[in-house]
Simulated scan of single mutants.
Amino acid sequence: MLTDNHGRKISYMRLAVTDRCNLRCFYCMPEHGLDWLSRTELMTNEEMLQICSLLVKMGIEKIRITGGEPFVRKDIVQLLTGISGLNGLKELGLTTNGVLTAPYVPELKKIGVRSVNLSLDTLDANRFFTITRRDEFSNVMASLDAMLSHDMEVKINAVVMDGKNTQDIIPLVELARELPVSVRFIEEMPFNGDGHVYDGSHWDYVRILDEIKGSYPQIKKLDDPAYSTSYNYQIPGHKGSIGIIAAYSRTFCGTCNRIRITPQGELKTCLYDDGVLNLKDLMRKGASDEALQDALLTAFSHRPADGWEAERARVAKTGIHESMATIGG
């Protein structure tokens, strides 16, 4: 079992396969997009499979593929197929914006992708366009329909933004009345790609819950699974459930079991650090699996206690300027 210097189990890896995205959500990146990584800067399928294989042998049990948007990477199904076959991997998941996903759903189910996180901040087509700067709402909803028709476990992730989509909280909760989905509301974070600092003071997890309670006073707290990043709730009579993720407040750091690897192979032992080890560079210099393992174990032994400590360390050097697309959602 992998553990860090604070005794926390490390069993979950989020692997970002690209920084590119076909949406331009304002809380994630500027309207013109980002300075995209060149193909040579991205990890190859072989490099990503090597990292996944090594980390599964070391104790990683769950891998979630993220981006950017994974389906803008043309060889994504090939990569997913390779990862799904790793001996010892217990769960393979995927995070997507749903724009291109619908045609792939039958194959994803066949490969063994158990759960999909679908990013969807509003159920209003006009607000969707305002938030994402793209007219793709119908494609996203088609992907949701396809996932549900294939009995996939779906979590809908909605970032709550002051003055932008708070009126969508209750309609999104209503989505869980008839559909077996988990609707999860996420505090906005400062990873918007332009250096704008979000102070986290407007819609934290307490205010989001109070908003929901105002319409559903009968809402009940559920037992949260081990290592959960969300506070989970059930409304009597609803097929689905509700979750609230304190991503900015960082109330779950004490049980965090996850690491992230960026598209260029940078290991992040905390969402709020600025990268602690470049695995791609080590592999391209010919490092053996043993050398990679030693480097990983050293990084895990210097993990910050929480996101606040990680942010303090990086702000002193660089501040927060990157996009979630370059980190891996």
Results as ranks from 00 to 15, higher is better:
M1E: 05
M1Y: 07
D4H: 10
R8I: 12
K9P: 07
K9G: 06
I10S: 04
Y12P: 04
Y12E: 14
L15R: 05
V17T: 12
V17L: 08
T18R: 03
C21R: 12
N22H: 09
C25N: 13
Y27F: 13
P30W: 13
L34M: 12
D35C: 08
D35K: 09
E41T: 04
L42K: 04
L42H: 11
E46A: 11
E47P: 05
E47Q: 11
V56T: 14
I60P: 02
E61C: 11
K62A: 14
G67I: 10
G68T: 13
E69D: 15
P70C: 13
P70I: 04
D75M: 09
S84I: 06
G85W: 05
G88M: 03
K90N: 13
G93F: 01
G93N: 10
N97F: 14
G98I: 07
L100D: 06
T101G: 06
P103K: 15
Y104C: 13
P106S: 10
E107C: 13
E107S: 13
L108Y: 02
K109F: 02
K110E: 13
G112F: 01
V116G: 00
N117F: 08
N117S: 14
L118C: 03
L118E: 00
S119K: 13
L120W: 01
L123W: 04
A125F: 12
N126M: 07
R127S: 14
F128T: 03
T130W: 05
T132F: 06
R133Y: 13
E136V: 07
N139C: 05
M141R: 02
M141F: 09
A142Y: 03
L144A: 00
S149V: 09
S149Y: 07
S149I: 09
A158M: 15
V159I: 15
M161W: 12
I170D: 02
I170H: 00
P171A: 10
L172C: 14
S182F: 00
M189C: 12
N192V: 02
N192R: 14
D194P: 06
G195L: 08
G195N: 08
V197A: 07
I208M: 11
L209F: 06
L209G: 11
E211V: 05
G214S: 15
S215K: 14
P217Q: 03
Q218C: 07
I219A: 05
L222N: 06
L222V: 00
D224H: 13
A226E: 15
A226C: 10
S230H: 04
S230A: 15
Y231Q: 06
Y233G: 09
Y233V: 03
H238T: 01
S241N: 03
G243V: 13
G243Q: 09
A246N: 04
A246G: 08
S249T: 01
R250K: 08
F252P: 02
G254H: 14
R258Q: 09
I259G: 07
Q264V: 09
E266S: 05
E266P: 04
K268P: 12
T269K: 05
C270K: 07
L271N: 11
V276N: 01
L277E: 07
L282S: 03
R284Y: 09
A287P: 03
A295W: 14
L297G: 05
S301C: 02
S301R: 06
W308A: 10
E309S: 06
A310R: 07
A310P: 12
R312N: 00
R314I: 01
T318C: 04
T318E: 00
I320Y: 09
I320R: 12
M324H: 10
M324S: 08
I327L: 15
